[in-house]
């Protein structure tokens, strides 16, 4: 029983990681109906940024964290301006391919700049564990859980209760109409990419002590975050968290109870089953074309 709970808890921690990356997908999708396949690579880049600030320049952890998040926000905006804005509104698949290209590009450039070794940084969460009865939970994982929940709540509130959030939702429904209603669409889209890249940077920084910083980490985790986002319904912020948790727990339990090999594909099997049963996820709206 304790094994089960321990697996469950580590699954939840893992799930929050996926949830955090999925959150980035969801934000961009929610505001522009673009799926950013390079989200995991933005996270990877965030990790490298923080490594540069803390590991190489020797800044304080929190300062480095702040700089990395701001740096990534600017990077996200630049990406939007250069790559996404010219093709926004064209078939979804071509934008998906463009972001896949971006991912390729970022991975190999990061590998060329920072090398291909596993990098580590010291963080306040690196050591230390929290013990509840017989349950052991490392601080680094705890920090991910806490951060994910906070970000989810804040972004959910942002989307549903602020003017900017409403403007973003309007933009995604019908961009032209949003223009006509005086919404600064370009600025809205820029902002959402900045926020999404910043969230990715948070994920990258928080994951640094857990997964190491490596140019391929984004690809690996990004591809696991997809099922999470889909499971939750692509446009839903709480859905990203719930989907992430489900994927994390399934992966962790499958790794423990099922034969080797199941761990890696269990999330995808669940995803396929989900897509067949409920094509638009747990929280996604159902789609129906009007004629």
């Amino acid at each position: 029983m304790l094994d089960f709970i321990q697996q469950l808890v580590s699954g939840i921690a893992l799930g929050c990681v996926y949830g955090l990356i999925a959150l980035g997908f969801v934000l961009i999708y929610k505001a522009t109906e673009v799926v950013n396949f390079a989200q995991g690579d933005l996270m990877m880049l965030g990790g490298f940024f923080v490594f540069t600030f803390i590991g190489l320049m020797g800044l304080d952890y929190w300062l480095g964290f702040l700089f990395a998040v701001c740096g990534m926000a600017v990077f996200g905006m630049a990406t939007e301006r250069i790559l996404v804005r010219p093709i926004l509104g064209y078939p979804q698949f071509s934008i998906v391919m463009a972001t896949i290209g971006l991912g390729y590009f970022l991975r190999s450039i990061a590998g060329m700049i920072w090398g291909t070794d596993d990098l580590r940084i010291e963080t306040p969460f690196s050591a230390g564990v929290l013990k509840v009865g017989d349950l052991v939970l490392a601080h680094d994982k705890l920090s991910v859980i806490v951060a994910t929940v906070i970000l989810c709540v804040v972004l959910y509130a942002f989307f549903n209760y602020t003017r900017m959030g409403t403007a973003m939702r309007a933009t995604s429904e019908n961009m032209l109409a949003a223009y006509y209603m005086g919404i600064p669409v370009k600025r809205v889209v820029s902002l959402i990419w900045a926020i999404s890249a910043a969230v990715a940077a948070c994920a990258g920084v928080l994951l640094a002590p857990i997964t190491f910083i490596h140019s391929n980490v984004g690809l690996v985790l990004g591809l696991k975050a997809f099922p999470a986002a889909v499971l939750g319904g692509f446009g839903s912020i709480p859905g990203a968290l719930v989907g992430g948790l489900i994927i994390g727990v399934i992966e962790s339990l499958a790794g423990f109870y099922l034969p080797q090999g199941w761990k890696d594909i269990a999330p995808y099997i669940v995803l396929l089953v989900m897509l067949v049963v409920r094509p638009h996820g747990l929280f996604g709206p159902s789609m129906r074309k009007k004629v």
Binding site: L83, M97, A98, Y104, S108
Partner: peptide, 19 residues
């Protein structure tokens, strides 16, 4: 001869063609 160059060029090619 840097290790990742091919990936970067692939990525650039995809982006350039789509843009």
């Amino acid at each position: 001869s840097a290790a990742g160059l091919k990936g970067a060029i692939y990525g650039l090619i995809i982006m350039m063609f789509i843009l």
